[in-house]
Structure formats: structure tokens, C-alpha cells
Design a protein around this nucleic acid. Structure first.
Lengths: 337, 337
DNA sequence: TCCAGAAGTTACAACGTTGTAGAACGAAGG
DNA sequence: CCTTCGTTCTACAACGTTGTAACTTCTGGA
């Protein structure tokens, strides 16, 4: 039913292998032959069967991208960049959602689905050191997120600790002293939450401000609703603070909403600072001061790194870790000093 | 290098076809044989080669989802639901971004990439009636968006006209008379913009309010920045209005931001109403009154529709159109009467 | 005891492509 | 005119799976 190489070959009056050669840019073909073949291809509307091509050649020209959830804006924007970068390189992207769940992350790594893929970009939340073996397979994997475990794969990451420290110091520099944080999650062994908390604590320590556990609000998932809930917790328990650092923008925005519902003014009474620099942050009211973690660079670099792994001989290189530059983006919710 | 059926067969001491039968759930297999085979599969960590399976069987267990951009929150949330629904049905989702560009939409429809796919869910912006031929191929396509053209495929849609009319009537009922709209795009022959504008005009007409072109602001893309720009246009040209209806939430949020920058109070001076009910809308300040278009239902129904097309014999059925229920979600930016 | 039919297993041929090896052809060099 | 060597094209064999059809081996009824 579908048009095959043989159909094209017959119409062009050549062997089907010659058609294959034309398609694959084999150099030694007479211009006249090439033209005949190309005309036949156009006439029949031939499209190569990619399953057959993959089976034979081993290449799929497809990558997988696995994120916790696509309706977390950070991951949506990340995915958008990854897909665009992959497309530029001629690759299609298959998107998986893991829910940030260790079991689902592991299941994905074992899944035969990935064998229709040349590599995986994974943004893990649940995996730990004990899962290193699951990554040892032949499939190239690029991890998004700090190299906190000794996993045998490339990492493309943001500078969580440094950025969180810079963000906190920005608040301190603007005169805030009682800085609450939202997003701590002790279940996460070594993910962003822990690293950003560390940066926060380093900043406090560097400025002689005591770490106060009462200012730390938990949030396992990082939706707006979780930020709102966390802020309610803080308010309910009578915590006193003059700034809030949300471990991501959605948490910060959820919290900011609750602050204003409670009659507190942002930034007059409480400054709010986020992390991610979502498109949304610039349009919030007040606009959200936040950390730009270099999302686009991360996406492009992840694709690039994966491509160089996939390339012949690329599998042998030592695992690399590359970190994006970050910047505090000054806006209304936390004005500079 | 990879483990194949033959390796498993050898270890289990059966023919490789028997292994295939076990994997495919063929009923007539002795329990003892099945167990031997399963043990061998587990021991070798066998995973079927999906390219080979696709080549032979014609099925790919993959669907493609094409949206304009994943960093438009509406499409991110939609994609999240589609991927989840597909996964429940055992399908993997391949995500494409078209930029809402007719040429790229057409290119995708022609692309050999889709032959590694059992079907496509497409959210078109640029296609028109003249492109019907491009849809006539063998690949099942489910369109998201009103059946404004006579395309030979299924449609799963929101009730754009009715919902926009209801939204406008909601504003009218709350006492607003000068209602600006943001998002008109005459380049789009018959997309959401046109339909929502029609609903708006119907509502005005039904209440004896004259349609005033000066209250209509254009926006080709529907990012927050476009909403902000459109609102600047309205303000710059001295348009007088007591309400704004953004054709989607991001436009409305961008506009709301500019309104407040200009010193106008929402909703006291100007009511703002959006369309989409993004997660974000509930946390905006003020929270955004909007239309819930039934996004999750649309996503699930699109996957379901595509599945029934893919199923044997499904190709023959008449094209169906199914529309989601909608609801105006009352929030602060446009309080009820 | 034999036979029919079901249960259980296997052999073989595709699916459409690319890699390898080599055949046919022509041009250049002696 | 023969040899050599590139150019151009072709034949054949995979890649790993599933569909078809056939072959055994059982089971139960006459």
C-alpha cells in the first residue's frame, strides 16, 4: 500500500538500491540517474519507512525527554526549548512524564520504549545513588540537575547552591533579615530543594544571620497550590518574616497570592523572590524578582551533549558536567537595595 | 549485541517463534513452556525491538501531538493531559511544535516522521480549506478546534462561540457596557480568535450594545507580552472601556498587568476576563475570572477518538465532531453581578 | 484400537531498509 | 591495444519481529 523503494526503482528504471543511494546522498551517481530517481520519488510521493530504516541502521533520530510534569511551567518552557533544539538537529522528541516518582523514573529507564530512541534527557527527582545501575545501559542519558550522585552519565545543570545563595544575599543586601523559604522537601535526597536550601543557609551564615527552622516551609510538589499552602502554614504558625524565597516561581507566586490575601503588602511588608524566571514572572502583580537559571542554555546544551554521545565514538568519553550561568532578575516583588 | 528473541529461545530451549507467542499472549502454550520462556526473558533482560515490531506489524504504539508552542501555558497543560491519557492507553507521545505556522503545519503532515506514528492530534492555526488534501492521507488525524472547514477527520473542540458569548454576557450582566477584546487576528481565517470574536459580537447584539471597532485589539500570538502590547495600544489610543475580555488567559494576564501599571484598578475601574482557566489564573492578583473550556475532557477525548480510529475497522467511520462543555469561572478580576 | 480435533510448537516468509561486495563500464596511462 | 583504476550501479544478505501454515503431540469418543 505505501510506496517503497522498489516502487520508485521500478518507475525510475534502476535498482532499488540505487534509489536508496540517492536518498542517502551516496556521491557516485550520474546526474541523469539522480534526476530520474528524484522525479520518481516526487511523482510517487515516496517517504522512507522509518521503522525499517531504524531496524536496519540502528539509528532512530528520536530522543526522549522525561520530566516530572509538563504542567509545571518550568518544565513546559524547558521542553519547548529542548524540542526546538532537537528539531534543529533533525531529531524528533518523545515526551514522558514521570511525576517525579522514583518508581516511574526507574520503569522508564527499563522500558523498551526507549529502544526506539537514540538517547534520553532526564530530569530526575526520585532516583538515588542506588539506581546507578539502571543508568549503565547502552542508551546515552543526559541528566538535568546537579551531579550529586556518582551516576555514569553526562549532566547539564544549573548552579543551584550558588544561585540560591546569590538570591538570598540579594534579599539580605536589600535589608531583609527574616527570610522565609518555601519548597524544602527532606524526602528528596539531593535534589534542587536541598541544594537551594544549602545556598540559602550559606548566605545566612555568611552574613551572621541565624538559621531559623520556623521560617522553612515544606512543599513536596512545586505547584502554585503548594506555595499557597506553605504560606498559609507560615502565617498560621505566626512566623515573622520580611521576605520569602520560593524555591521556584510557581511556589513564590502561590505564596505571593496568599500574602496579599492576608493583607500583607509586597514588597513593602514582605519581599518575594522566586527561581526560574518563568514568562509569567514578569507579568505577575507585582512582577516577580527571580533567578534566571539559564533554561534555554540548559536545553540546548543538553541536546548538544546528547548528540555528541550518540555520534560515533561518543560513547567512550568521560561523563561531563556542565553548569549554566545564572542571574538574579530584579523586579518589583523584591526591589534592589 | 542486544538480546533478541533467538537468544531467549536458545536459553529456554524452544523455537524463537514460541518466545514471540509467549510475549504476544498467544493462548495455546503449556504453562511449563511459558514459565521456561519467562524465566529466560527475565534472566537475559530481553526487551523487544520496537522498530522491528513496527516494521512487521505496522503498529507503532505511538501518537504525535502537534501544538503551536509548548510554552504557551494552555498547550502545556493540554499536552500534559494528552500524554497522560495516551500513556494510560499504552501509547507514547511524540510532541511537535508548529509555531502556528501554516507552512510548518503542512510540512509536518507531509513529514515521514509521522510514519513512525499511529495517528496525530493536531491543534492547527494556519491550515485552511485548501489544505484538506494534505489531511486525506492514511494517517488518522484528530483536530483540536472547531470544525470550521470541511476536513476529512475527527474534531474535538471547545464551544468557542457559545463560550465567548457566555463570557461576554457575564460581563454585561455584571453591569459592564464598554467591553474591549484582545486577541483578534484577521490573518487567522477561522480559528479561535474569529469564533470568540463572533461570540462576543452576538452577546453585544443580544443586549443592544453597539459593536465598536475601537475596542478591538489585535494579537497574532497569544503570549502575555502580546496581551500587554495590545493593552498598551488600547490605552494609547484613548479607548474607553470598563471591561476587557482576553481571548485567552495569558493575553488577559498581560493586559491586566498593564492596566494596573497604568493606575487602573481591577475590577473597580476595569473588569478583566480570560479564557482557558490556567492553573495560573487562580493565583493571579486579582485572581482571574475566566472560561473553563474543558481542557482535560478535550485531551482525553482526543486520545480516545484517535484510538478508535486506529482500531481495526475504525478508519471507515464518518468523521465525528465532539465539543466540550464549558463554564465561566467566577473570580476577583470580574466579580458576578 | 483408531480417528478426529484441539493443543502446543515450529518453519518459513515476509516487512522495507542499509551495508558489503562485487560487476559493468569508461577513461587514462603505458 | 591492454591494463588499471576510478565511477556507477546492482545483487544479496542481513536487521528482529510477526503472520500463516503446517507439523507434532495429546485427549476423548466411537
Amino acid at each position: 500500500m505505501a510506496v517503497t523503494l522498489r516502487d520508485v526503482a521500478e518507475l525510475a528504471g534502476v535498482s532499488f538500491k540505487t534509489v536508496s543511494n540517492v536518498i542517502n546522498g551516496y556521491p557516485h551517481i550520474r546526474p541523469a540517474t539522480r534526476e530520474k530517481v528524484e522525479r520518481a520519488i516526487a511523482e510517487l510521493g515516496y517517504k522512507p519507512n522509518l521503522s525499517a530504516r531504524s531496524l536496519r541502521s540502528g539509528r532512530t533520530d528520536t530522543i526522549a525527554l522525561a520530566v516530572p510534569e509538563l504542567n509545571l511551567s518550568y518544565f513546559a518552557e524547558l521542553a519547548s526549548f529542548v524540542i526546538a533544539a532537537a528539531e534543529e538537529a533533525g531529531l524528533v522528541t518523545l515526551v514522558e512524564q514521570t511525576g517525579g516518582d522514583r518508581a516511574r523514573e526507574l520503569a522508564l529507564l527499563q522500558s523498551p520504549r526507549l529502544n526506539r530512541t537514540d538517547g534520553l534527557i532526564l530530569s530526575p527527582l526520585g532516583l538515588g545513588q542506588e539506581d546507578a545501575a539502571a543508568l549503565a545501559g547502552p542508551l546515552p542519558v543526559v541528566m538535568l540537575g546537579e551531579r550529586t550522585f556518582d551516576w555514569p552519565c553526562d549532566h547539564v545543570t544549573m548552579r543551584n547552591v550558588e544561585a540560591a545563595r546569590a538570591a538570598t544575599e540579594y534579599l539580605i543586601a536589600s535589608g531583609r533579615r527574616r527570610i522565609a523559604v518555601i519548597g524544602e522537601n527532606e524526602a528528596e535526597v539531593m535534589g534542587s530543594a536541598r541544594l537551594r536550601l544549602r545556598g540559602y543557609r550559606e548566605a545566612l551564615a555568611a552574613h551572621g544571620i541565624e538559621y531559623d527552622e520556623r521560617l522553612v516551609a515544606r512543599a513536596t510538589l512545586w505547584h502554585r497550590a503548594d506555595g499557597a499552602r506553605a504560606m498559609h502554614d507560615l502565617l498560621d504558625r505566626g512566623a515573622e518574616f520580611d521576605a520569602v524565597f520560593g524555591f521556584n516561581d510557581t511556589l513564590a507566586l502561590g505564596a505571593m497570592r496568599v500574602l496579599q490575601e492576608a493583607g500583607l503588602r509586597v514588597p513593602a511588608d514582605v519581599a518575594v523572590l522566586g527561581f526560574d524566571d518563568l514568562d509569567e514572572a514578569a507579568y505577575a502583580i507585582p512582577s516577580l524578582t527571580t533567578v534566571d537559571p539559564g533554561r534555554e542554555w540548559i536545553a540546548r546544551t543538553a541536546v548538544e551533549t546528547l548528540l555528541s554521545r550518540i555520534a560515533p565514538g561518543g560513547a567512550d568519553a568521560e561523563p561531563r558536567t556542565r553548569a549554566a550561568a545564572f542571574a538574579v532578575v530584579e523586579r518589583e516583588s523584591a526591589p534592589p537595595a
